[in-house]
């Protein structure tokens, strides 16, 4: 069976994660070998996922950590450890 482009698009995410059934995986792979449009969709999606997973996309605000730990300190230096269950 030959897959049409729009059926291949349904499998892009699964293909990238390697979660497709092996038969579907093979059909998609075959299609990609000769279809430039689907290859470009796959490549661009993969590229975008690499970029969005990069730590540099989101920067912590300056002083974030200091303010967080200062606030925690107030809580932690308060009386007891967090309430204990079943002891």
């Amino acid at each position: 069976m030959v897959l049409e482009c729009k059926h291949v698009w349904e499998h892009i995410s699964g293909y990238l994660d390697g979660t497709l059934d092996s038969e579907v995986q093979m059909q998609v792979q075959k299609h990609l070998e000769h279809c430039e449009i689907c290859s470009a969709i796959l490549d661009s999606t993969r590229n975008i996922l690499i970029l969005t997973a990069d730590d540099r996309v989101y920067e912590l605000p300056l002083g974030f950590s200091e303010r967080l730990h200062a606030r925690l300190d107030k809580e932690l230096s308060g009386l007891a450890p967090p309430e204990k269950s079943e002891t």
Partner: peptide, 26 residues
């Protein structure tokens, strides 16, 4: 439906040094 492109030239991770790119992704 995805955006249709005829080809794709890799965007290097170094492009994230540019705020413009980070904003676009965010």
């Amino acid at each position: 439906s995805p955006a249709l492109l005829r080809d794709w030239r890799e965007i290097p991770s170094e492009s994230l040094e540019r705020q413009e790119v980070r904003h676009l992704l965010q």
